[in-house]
């Protein structure tokens, strides 16, 4: 098992229904893409949030990464739409 801190922002947060959750991901989850597959199956809100993968941006430990980035014990993994500040 891998303990991960998951963060959601903007419409990812409103769809999932929470801005943060701690999860114990199974050992089969090795990278962010695998994590998204696993999270998507957690419920209808998660399924809706991860339905359009191309619209989801990812940060691991507060740095932008691609879906093939590995996940490790204690990582903070954030999912959010393209940014719209400024």
């Amino acid at each position: 098992m891998t303990t991960l801190q998951i963060r959601y922002f903007a419409w990812m947060r409103t769809r999932v229904g929470t801005g943060a959750e701690a999860v114990e991901a199974p050992d089969t989850v090795r990278d962010v893409a695998g994590l998204m597959d696993w999270l998507e199956a957690r419920g209808p809100g998660h399924a809706k949030a991860f339905a359009r993968r191309e619209a989801v941006r990812i940060a691991v430990n507060q740095d932008y990464v691609d879906p093939d980035h590995p996940v490790a014990e204690g990582d903070e993994v954030a999912f959010f739409p393209p940014v719209t500040g400024g």
Binding site: F9, A10, A59, Y64, F80, P81, V83, T84, G85, G86
Partner: peptide, 12 residues
């Protein structure tokens, strides 16, 4: 400002 708009994690 150009980089901020596409890289800083803000949402409206």
């Amino acid at each position: 400002i150009d980089w901020l708009k596409t890289k800083a994690p803000f949402w409206k």
